[in-house]
Amino acid sequence: MREVFVNMGQIQGLVGDGVLTTVGLGSCVGVALYDSAARVGVMGHIFLPRSRKNSSAELPGKFADTAIPALIAEAVKLGAQKRRLWAKLAGGANLFTNLSGPNGNIGLQNVQAVQESLKLHNIPVVGQDVAGHHGRKMRFFVDTGRVTVTAIGKEPIDI
């Protein structure tokens, strides 16, 4: 089965079958959007909650506020209908609990920014495994919309 890896800041999509995989989610949030009728799946690997002025030329997939519209656009381009999309999320952990202050818990800020942006676009979150203090691997099976999340030394769980 075809497996496409989604690196930090990237957006990837598949139609019909195959697996979208993102490895090593820490404070980043992996977002899977799916249209089951069209069997279109797109995945993003979001690094920070908000884009900054000097980042305009950067990948839209890096930041929650620019990534969600870009993910929707990619799904629609591949044949999905926006009103049929749902989302599943993984990541947003806080690995270094000593890092405090305004930049402290980026993981949680990422999760909140992604959830807010999805709400703005009326896309329901039907499953998630977020926050905590460990890294995750996320696999998105585009034939069925199944999403599994794995932590080191653990069995995959379905979300």
Binding site: M8, V23, G24, L25, G26, S27, C28, F47, L48, R52, S55, E58, K62, A93, N94, L95, F96, T97, N98, L99, S100, N103, G104, I106, G107, N110, H133, H134, G135, R136, K137, I152
Partner: peptide, 25 residues
């Protein structure tokens, strides 16, 4: 320096947490 924080986890997860903490892009 602050007190040290330690994480033992997937390389990708550790890296991005360090980078995101510093808001490096």
């Amino acid at each position: 320096p602050s007190i040290p924080g330690l994480a033992i986890d997937m390389a990708g997860a550790v890296w991005q947490s360090v980078l995101a903490g510093a808001l490096i892009d």
